[in-house]
């Protein structure tokens, strides 16, 4: 994220380093409060940390389930649904400075300086930043609701591979499990090495696959049945015939459906 958007008018004197997971980030926030660090002189960075600075104390915080849980409860209790949704989106973001932004947003909220929904105070640079990264995550998740393409495997399972920038799977779970509750499906996020499993009429869950499983999935395209390829052919026919020649506008198409999504979409293969 460009530093011009927010330039802290202080240099941090303590930097907490944590791993890039909800548990890690929440534990770091817990530690900052536990040790009574002032938010004005504290920063949280994701491991392995940014450029090291002079006159700064670096503390590495281990992820701790209990601590993280307490922070989560505080967020739910103090901020209400919308703000906690925004914070969660922030946690799933690809941005490296998300931990710091979330920490300072929470600090603002707990300082009782603002009344009403915390996310409305966009004048505050941290809240504005959080709102920006949240939009980016939510937008990508919404895109994937439409752009995910399933392939039916021989055993009837629907399989999809995606390459999102942000960690969006948790944000699309409810959509897809509701829509395809009667199906068995897998959505495999190649970038974050995680996948979403859904078994017919059961709860969905996220699963961290083994290396071999991932290799197996990456080659799944080569083993599709003839029927599956036929359905794809039909959709490609539809996709091509629906365009109006007189209105052809590839640039507009690319603005609305950026190239990075197309690698996994059969519409363009």
């Amino acid at each position: 994220m460009s530093s011009s958007l927010y330039s802290p008018d202080y240099s941090a004197q303590t930097v907490l380093l944590c791993e890039d997971s909800p548990e890690g980030i929440f534990s770091a926030i817990y530690t900052a409060y536990e040790r009574k660090f002032s938010p004005n002189y504290t920063k949280i960075e994701l491991l392995p940390g940014e450029n090291y600075q002079l006159f700064t104390e670096y503390i590495t915080v281990e992820g701790d389930r209990e601590k993280a849980k307490k922070v989560k409860q505080t967020i739910d209790k103090r901020f209400g649904g919308l703000t906690s949704y925004v914070i969660w989106c922030g946690i799933y973001s690809k941005e490296r400075d998300k931990a710091d932004i979330i920490y300072h947003t929470i600090a603002r909220g707990l300082s009782k300086k603002y009344r009403g929904e915390l996310t409305d105070f966009l004048q505050d640079p941290y809240i504005m930043m959080l709102s920006k990264i949240q939009k980016n995550v939510a937008k990508e998740a919404h895109h994937y609701k439409g752009f995910i393409r399933f392939a039916q495997l021989d055993n009837g399972i629907l399989f999809s591979k995606i390459n999102p920038k942000n960690y969006i799977l948790p944000l699309v779970v409810s959509h897809f499990s509701d829509r395809f509750s009667e199906e068995d499906f897998v959505i495999y996020d190649e970038n974050h090495h995680v996948c979403l499993f859904h078994e017919r009429r059961k709860e969905s869950y996220l699963y961290l696959p083994e290396k071999e499983e991932e290799l197996h999935w990456q080659k799944i395209e080569e083993r599709l049945s003839k029927e599956e390829l036929e359905v794809r052919g039909l959709f490609k026919t539809f996709h091509q015939s629906i365009a109006i020649e007189y209105r052809k506008n590839l640039k507009l198409q690319q603005n609305l459906l950026p190239l990075r999504f197309r690698g996994n979409m059969i519409d363009f293969l």
Binding site: H142, K145, G146, F147, H175, D178, R179, F180, S181, E182, E183, R201, H239, Q240, I242, A243, I244, E245, R247, K248, N249, L250, K251, L252, Q253, N255, L256, L257, M265, D267
Partner: peptide, 23 residues
């Protein structure tokens, strides 16, 4: 979604693809 049925609907609408004319 309903048990035994396929699908649901989202009020915001979802675009699944864009054709060569940008629609």
């Amino acid at each position: 979604g309903k048990a035994g049925a396929l699908g649901n609907a989202a009020a915001c609408g979802i675009c699944h693809s864009f054709s060569a004319d940008g629609r």
